[in-house]
Design a protein around this nucleic acid. Structure first.
Lengths: 340, 340
DNA sequence: TTGAAAGCGCTAACAC
DNA sequence: GTGTTAGCGCTTTCAA
């Protein structure tokens, strides 16, 4: 079916080796032979067999990305954009991207990571949504398997990562609302166990404390990162006394849920109650009102994560294996005008 | 590094061949030997090398999915959900999923398809967002390369596909609005060139005609599938006379854009102006107001597409190579009450 | 019941 | 410059 080196060799009446080296452009092949080789390769439509090359080189040329997703209908735009980032960068370096999805901490996830470290499945992995005591990272480190994480962890392993400074981001967001005059601010935190959630929560708590603002119990609730979750928790928050003048969510999707539920209750977001999010997913620029949030360059983060991974796979140690990006505050209408 | 058949053979003092067959469970291996083999394999943590197996079997065990995306910040939730569907189904059958992204009709896209058909890159492809005169499908058909499309085309090739009946879906949507009393309905169509856009447009036009409702020029505008696009076109639509009482969009993302822009202009969606979408992405259940739309089971479609592809790769001809699913109308508040 | 040998398509060390 | 040979790890005839 497909044209192989052997076919070319037969056609040209020379050895397979010479053909191989001619194609690779080695300079120990007569110039004229080179030309003849490349010519017939072209003519016969030769394409090297990647599997064979991989076997020989003991490399797969494939990067793995295991998405930690809950049920099937997840729609966190984070993932599409992140995949685009790593995928395009991988393609630039002639790597392919293998994607699989597993619920976090599930058996399937464990098996897949196990497979990665024990058989020659992929050359390296990209890990996202790092967790406290992250078993994936422990495994990868123990096996000395090439990977880069988007996010840090709290254990003692030293590993390459790209991360955004969630704490700094959340500080900026909270301070913005405090500067607008808000004193009663409720917070919907990401699920505990996720490192970035922890940083965002800390950013909230510290900034409130720094400004001498108490955070009574019940003013911090734990969400599930979904829009529905944000909507439901809004009910609890509206029952607080005094009623919060601002609600901040640990991610944009939850913030959207909050806005919608508030509107259903007849509140005008940005006037009656202010809302803030985190991520700056493309959607929130066009909501009504547009959402004040913290911008993360997800595509760019994907690109850099992938780039670092490829460096590691190729045996180059990355210039800076611990990249921490500072996200920026994006003020839109949902945070409203200064209040009394 | 990794344990190979050779290692096992040496350890056991038997031949590689026997080990291989023992592991595969051939019944021409002494039961006792079988046990010893499996035992040491377990003990030494043997995992077969996939690349070697692939080379031998002349199969990659990989399915390819080339996402047609525009710029980096695409966030159509369609893709995340679709990937989850095909990915999980692929995993069930021990296939991996390779994902790459390219702008539609770009050079990169062409090269990638070319690569798929000429070298042993993947065992089969999944094609989405079929186009008029779709070059990808023509190429795949000519090379007799295994693939399944989500969507049909207008040319003469006969190929396996899964599709939802966009025309029927749009008919249901339009009829719903007409039944509510709307006579002046504007439509934002998907970009021309995409097959599903064509069906949705036809569904709109035919249903209007069937109900004796004229559609003056300017009442159908072409959108780009994004929220921003929907928002911007809303301006044009609001300038029409008489002002439309309902605006229908070719997908949910655009419908969201429409709703938001209407709200910015002070309209109450579902009262002053009704809005309808298409896709039922998870987001729109929780918008304010929730969006009336046509539900497509994207995850399920991904699953079935993948399933059919695996059948084809394995040489089983699919029971039904032309699956057409009828999407369902989901009525929510954005379509409002019957009007005069 | 087991083993030797060939071969998948490619690369690379080492002759000639 | 070019060819011979070996080998990546696995599966599969074919003999023994």
């Amino acid at each position: 079916m497909a044209v192989t080196l052997k076919d070319l060799a037969r056609e040209l009446g020379i050895s397979i080796t010479t053909v191989s080296r001619g194609l690779a452009g080695y300079d120990d092949v007569a110039e004229e032979t080179q030309l003849r080789i490349k010519d017939t390769a072209e003519r016969l439509g030769y394409q090297p067999n990647l599997t064979a090359r991989r076997l020989q080189k003991q490399q797969t040329g494939i990067l793995g990305f295991i998405m930690p997703t809950f049920g099937p209908r997840f729609s966190d735009p984070f993932f599409s954009e992140f995949i685009a980032g790593i995928g395009n960068e991988a393609a630039n370096h002639d790597f392919d991207l293998l994607v699989s999805t597993h619920p976090p901490d599930s058996d399937g996830e464990r098996k897949t990571y196990q497979r990665a470290v024990t058989r020659a499945w992929v050359d390296g992995l990209i890990v996202v949504r790092t967790r406290e005591e992250d078993a994936r990272i422990q495994l990868l480190c123990q096996h000395n398997f090439p990977f880069v994480a988007f996010g840090r962890t709290d254990d003692e392993y030293d590993f390459p990562f790209v991360d955004e400074d969630s704490e700094a981001g959340m500080r900026a967001l909270v301070q913005h609302f405090i500067d607008l005059g808000h004193r009663h601010i409720a917070f919907i935190s990401p699920p505990s166990g996720l490192m970035f959630g922890r940083y965002r929560l800390k950013g909230f708590q510290d900034t409130m404390a720094d400004n001498g603002l108490p955070v009574p119990s019940g003013w911090i609730v734990e969400g599930d990162m979904t829009q529905r979750g944000g909507a439901e928790l809004t009910e609890q928050i509206l029952a607080l006394t005094p009623r919060p003048t601002a609600i901040l969510a640990g991610n944009d999707l939850m913030a959207l849920g909050v806005m919608n539920r508030l509107q259903q209750h007849g509140f005008t977001v940005g006037e009656d109650i202010a809302v803030g999010g985190f991520d700056d997913i493309p959607l929130v620029e066009h909501t009504h009102p547009p959402l004040t949030t913290i911008h993360q360059p997800i595509y760019e983060i994907g690109r850099r994560t992938c780039d670092m991974l490829i460096d590691i796979i190729n045996g180059r140690s990355p210039t800076n294996p611990h990249v921490l990006l500072t996200p920026t505050l994006v003020v839109r209408a949902s945070s409203g005008q200064p209040i009394a």
